[in-house]
Amino acid sequence: MRHPDPEQLVLIALGETAPTDHLDGCDTCRAEVEQLRVVAAVGAETQDVRDLPAPPAAVWAGIEAATRGSTPADGPRLTRSARPFRRGTDLAPPRGPGRARRWARRTAALVAAVAVGVAGTLAATRLFHHDSAPPLAGCGTVVARADLSALPLAPTGATGEARVLCDGPQRRLDLHVTGLPLQPGYYEVWLIDPNTMEMTAIGQLGDGNDVLLPLSSTTDLRKYRLVDISAEQYDNDQAHSGKSMLRGQLTT
């Protein structure tokens, strides 16, 4: 069987020449024309994507900030620096019993939670970072820990670890997370009593993968034993958004 020459097939694919009878009987040439037709159709569409505008300048700024000084050996490290971010300047004393504390009381199952108004607001949250925390004065004792697993809203592979360091007034929650995506809001850290779904906000995740948050020595970790990280918006609503990303149970 004599095939049409390749240039003939190109012209057929471009719709310039009528398909020949040969194509009806030749799978090879028919497939060739089909592929060339796709190329021609996609080619015609390329007119719309020439000279595309560059992304806004903030995008490059974010990339530069996130990649500065990093090497592949650092492993995947997503940044969340695109969002506004308040950084604590010093380490505030842990919230103690004498400090007014309001608890967001929830009765609905958390995963189904739709944000509702909460009477009052949680005490203003401050952010704490390794780089701003004073030395732990030798108190690195892990008194409880939890592996945090991705909930359905989180990307596959998102994971984390929470460790409670020290007991008493120096008690802290040491968090390490990976794989949480950039989002326009922020991530809030909660402790939840799974029996009552009462919860309290501990603090916010910064734009790194690690954060060290003060933890009241009076919080009963056998009761409030779920560590939960939720995606929150800057919407003045202090209640849990219902968008939990990571969760894990503390074990002592």
């Binding site: 995008v59 990339i63 996130a66 997503l78 940044t79 695109a82 989002q183």
Partner: peptide, 9 residues
Amino acid sequence: EDVTQTTFV
């Protein structure tokens, strides 16, 4: 913008 940024990072 977020996707573009995270893609390049």
